[in-house]
Design a protein around this nucleic acid. Structure first.
Lengths: 215, 215
DNA sequence: TATAATTTTTAGATTTGCCTAAATTTAATT
DNA sequence: AATTAAATTTAGGCAAATCTAAAAATTATA
């Protein structure tokens, strides 16, 4: 499987994760910052290989084979992120681009040994689940901070947006995985939140609150 | 730089290491298992980029820029090999193919952090030197076992052939980096050697002895 | 030193992945 | 329901890296 094929599968997998319905050509093109016509070409190719179910003009979904392949790429991506953060001391906002490259390294033995070396983690540095060698995923039920109500307390267990900018913002506010977060006040006007993180109080916009997962 | 460009630079670097003179198109084609015409195409391209000195029909050599680039690839390859053997417990005959992939990962920060994580090793699992971040190499003077004389004693510090077959043979004979090797007898008829490795005695052909480095 | 053999380069194709522009299909709106 | 708008696909091209076959240059040999 080529890098490009892998990237398409991964993108379709991620889009499926959030929307569930069949994925449109444009949605893929937008996410991959490429043109719809390029996507069409690739969908034909992936369809030939039985990695996706593709009907012209109707959108696309992963076959079982495609879904497993996608999960294995995600597995590699997230394990490498763990490696970078836990062993090489990268910060969580630096690892994505490097993991984008490492996820294409082809060796089952390598990834399984890496998994063991890291102590078989179930989540990556952003709180996202890591598929096991069979593609199984442990789902943790979690809510967005924005869905919380006044006086509720939870622990930060993940982030939705994993962009470097957002992660750096969280670092600045000293919000990390494991941080306790308490809703002090919910401002009805702009849906912003007054929260307590550890001992500090701060105000976050609804956009921020919509990208933090709490349990 | 593309993977292919990197592979060509690396190959030219390795060929230079052994022969010193300008490298021929055919030598590159043979080593890379490709066609001479493909090599010509790439040499033009590398020449455009000032990575090689190329004169039609006359062979090729690396420019300073090309040599540094090649060294950085070798550095990555060998550091990853160290990682695979020392951290992930791969055996020394398994790491080459995986390192061939990992050597193309682009991130200076990654490779320098990996270097530190491994304790800044100066040699890879086959005894080959690892260039530092500036491309400097610590050369260790070493001899081939085949050049040794009767009653001489040395330590195995490297191997010339790093093929899986040869390395597995060495494992079987319990010859590893650091093993003490003593020449008991040199057979003039076929230039084979009777040697002692640790406490065991064995006979090795001249071909074997010509691929083991001793100090 | 001619001629043969070898090496190297050029010319022209192929594949992959991408693009633009035009055509087609589907969805939305009047 | 007809027309407009949007999404999608097709058609045709381009660049990278490879190949085969033919041409050119170099080297070896008679």
């Amino acid at each position: 499987m080529t890098f490009s094929e892998e990237n398409y599968l991964k993108t379709i997998y991620h889009l499926t994760w959030v929307s569930d319905a069949d994925i449109s050509t444009n949605a893929i093109a937008e996410k991959m910052e490429t043109k719809a016509s390029s996507v069409t070409d690739m969908l034909k190719k992936l369809s030939e290989k039985d990695l996706v179910n593709y009907i012209k003009y109707q959108g696309v979904s992963l076959t079982d084979k495609g879904k497993l392949a996608a999960k294995m790429i995600v597995r590699k991506h997230r394990l490498w992120e763990c490696f970078l953060v836990e062993k090489l001391e990268f910060s969580w906002d630096e690892v994505h681009d490097i993991a984008e490259q490492l996820e294409h390294i082809k060796s089952e033995k390598l990834i399984n040994k890496l998994d063991d070396f890291l102590g078989n983690p179930t989540e990556d540095p952003h709180g996202d689940p890591i598929p096991d060698a069979n593609g199984r995923i442990i789902k943790v039920e979690k809510q967005l901070l924005s869905e919380f109500e006044k006086n509720q307390i939870g622990i930060c267990v993940g982030v939705k947006d994993t962009s470097s900018d957002f992660l750096k913002y969280l670092d600045k506010q000293e919000i990390a995985l494991g941080s306790q977060i308490e809703i002090i006040e919910k401002e009805s006007f702009d849906s912003s939140f007054r929260i307590r993180v550890g001992t500090k109080e701060l105000t976050v916009s609804n956009k921020i609150a919509s990208n933090i997962y709490i349990k």
